[in-house]
């Protein structure tokens, strides 16, 4: 088999760094950190506020909690009919299934669009793009009618099955664009080695598309994790709730809202996403360099 592995990157600032370069590096990191503090201020403030007593949440613009307390985390975790551990579990289940479904189904479709010739290809491609143009609010009702008729309400099927059927054209299109940057010569070489389309897909395109697959996985994870409308419509029973529904139940314009616990749980709900990001970004960014073909 062929190997396609660009040489590992040379770090820009190696051990042989000169004094000038050192100054430059420090300056660059300094700028980065300043920019980041500006960008991350709202998030840092939220984390700080989550450690303040519940009725002091909005008292200060400072990032420092002041009267430090963990009450918001304790109260927030147990508020509602079930604890957040249940919501985290539900969210994770739906999210992981969605990631798997989306990556597989979209990669398959993208390969066909990027590499294969078939009748009505241009038409189908246009249809695929067309499905992205309609705002989802107007298809929401007919979809609900459909899922209700299938008796899928209060199951996770309406949220996961569509992912296995590649209904999110964004990701197909994304992968098509990625795959089309890969040279055809690779396919040809593999074909000479006796690979069919399935072989080319599995042994050439998939490994080389790892950044695209990683991006798809990451985005699917985040979109599903943050989705509120879908769970709201389809997961009515509290034992099926996701994290976003739990978060939403802290605020109500007609009664008592609890901001401290909201910020505490919002902070916690970022953890899996950030964790997934760190896991996925290795695939994403270092994909090509580390995963030569086997």
């Amino acid at each position: 088999m062929t190997t396609y592995a660009p040489a590992p990157r040379k770090p820009l600032f190696g051990r042989t760094m000169s004094r000038n370069k050192m100054v430059l590096a420090v300056a660059r990191h300094f700028t980065m950190i300043v920019v980041l503090i500006v960008i991350l201020y709202p998030l840092l403030w939220m984390v700080g506020a989550s450690f303040r007593p519940a009725n002091e949440t909005f008292n200060t613009l400072s990032l420092w909690p002041g009267n430090f307390t963990l009450d918001n985390y304790v109260d927030g975790w147990t508020l509602g009919s079930f604890t957040f551990s249940r919501y985290f579990f539900n969210s994770l289940l739906i999210t992981l299934l969605s990631v798997v479904g989306n990556v597989i189904a979209c990669a398959l479709a993208a390969y066909a669009f990027a590499r294969l010739e078939f009748p009505f290809k241009r038409t189908l491609f246009a249809v695929m793009l067309g499905t992205m143009l309609l705002p989802y609010h107007v298809t929401l009702v007919p979809q609900y009618v459909l899922f209700n008729e299938l008796a899928w309400i209060n199951t996770i099927l309406p949220l996961t099955v569509p992912k296995f059927l590649a209904t999110d054209a964004f990701f197909i299109f994304l992968m098509v664009q990625f795959m089309r940057t890969l040279p055809r010569e690779l396919d040809d070489a593999a074909r000479l080695d006796g690979c069919g389309h399935v072989g080319i897909f599995r042994r050439i395109i998939l490994p080389l598309s790892i950044p695209a697959l990683g991006t798809t996985a990451l985005f699917t994870f985040i979109n599903t994790w943050n989705d509120f409308l879908g769970p709201l419509l389809y997961l009515n029973r509290p034992e099926l709730w996701t994290v976003t529904q739990g978060l939403n139940s802290f605020l109500d314009a007609t009664g008592q809202s609890t901001f401290g616990p909201l910020f505490a749980m919002a902070t916690l709900s970022l953890a899996p996403v950030v964790g997934f990001f760190f896991a996925a970004q290795r695939l994403l960014i270092e994909g090509i360099a580390t995963s030569g073909l086997k």
Binding site: G80, D252, T254, Q256, T258
Partner: peptide, 9 residues
């Protein structure tokens, strides 16, 4: 019903 936190309980 609609509500948050304590009302739900």
């Amino acid at each position: 019903w609609w509500g948050a936190g304590q009302r739900n309980e």
